[in-house]
Amino acid sequence: MTDTRTDELELLASLVPLDGQRLIELGCGAAGLARRLVERHAGASVLGLEVDERQHAKNLASDAPPGLSFQAGGAQAIPFPDARFDGALMLKSLHHVPMPLMDPALDEVRRVLVPGGWLYVSEPVYAGALNEVIRLFNDEGEVRAAAQQALDRAIAAGGWQQADERRFEVPVRFADFAEFECRMVDVTFAERRFDDALRAAVRARFEPHMGPDGAHFVRPMHVRLLRRVD
């Protein structure tokens, strides 16, 4: 039976303690999970690191709950001292790190974790109907594979141990093609070249999934939980 989840925070909380933990999220985006985390888990703090300037400005301007703060920066050069955090999150972000920088980024994450600290990496699987639509204008097959290979190399090098691994699906709904464009095309961290021909091709692949209440998909996800080895 496939594990379906609408809130990944529940899975994270089942794998690691969160109350009172000092956490960093690399490539935090709008920090949706981090916002819920600090509200639900007493004494937890999350530092959201974001390389995209426009998203970082939005985060700074947002009404962040106590315990959540933001700083600009990339995972390959984390602006904090050694052993600063108990745990780290990379939610659909490792594959956005430039491929030559993935190994240095994982080294940096290890550096800022306390001994025995954990890294939770959640990556979309390159499969499924939604992926078939998106790959017409944003084919991430190579970078998603590279992200998994970087994790394998980090473990093989001896600095990390894989503590757990999970797979699940996230339901995704779009009211119509316009909402799909808004959420998946018009994003701050990418400049899409979306001409009329490509738009028509994407729409043609999207529209068969439309029903009376919108288009429904599932996004398959792959989680790997690593622990720092000393």
Rank of each mutant, 00 (worst) to 15 (best):
R110P: 02
F80G: 00
H216K: 14
D3Y: 00
A201G: 10
Q21A: 15
L119P: 11
D107P: 00
E123A: 07
D195Q: 11
H41C: 09
S122P: 00
E132H: 08
I24L: 14
R228I: 08
E108H: 01
T6I: 14
T188G: 03
E25I: 04
D176W: 02
F137H: 11
E39S: 12
G87T: 05
W160S: 07
V170K: 05
G116E: 04
P208A: 09
D63M: 06
P79A: 06
V112R: 06
R36K: 14
D164W: 03
F217E: 08
L119E: 04
L226E: 09
G20E: 06
V172L: 14
E123L: 14
R54W: 01
Y126A: 06
R193N: 08
T6K: 10
A88K: 04
E108M: 05
R205D: 06
H95V: 13
E140R: 01
F137L: 11
R84H: 06
L91D: 03
R111Y: 11
A190L: 14
A13V: 03
A129P: 06
D3N: 01
P115L: 11
R224Y: 03
Q149W: 00
V46I: 11
A175N: 11
A64I: 02
L9R: 03
D176P: 15
L106M: 07
R153N: 09
V133P: 05
Q55R: 13
D230S: 15
P66G: 12
A44R: 01
D176S: 13
A215V: 15
S62M: 09
R54M: 02
V170S: 03
V218L: 10
D213M: 08
H209A: 14
F206P: 10
E53H: 08
V223L: 15
Q55K: 04
Q162R: 15
F85P: 08
V133A: 13
R22T: 07
R192M: 15
S14R: 11
S122D: 15
D164L: 03
P66T: 08
A145C: 05
T188E: 13
A127E: 13
N138K: 03
T188N: 12
R22L: 08
W160P: 06
M102H: 00
L15E: 13
K58N: 05
A146I: 05
Q21P: 03
E108G: 08
V187H: 00
G116I: 12
D19I: 02
R40G: 01
A145D: 14
L49M: 07
G128W: 12
Y120W: 15
P212A: 13
L151K: 02
D52C: 15
P212M: 04
G48K: 00
L225M: 03
L15G: 05
D52Y: 01
A175D: 12
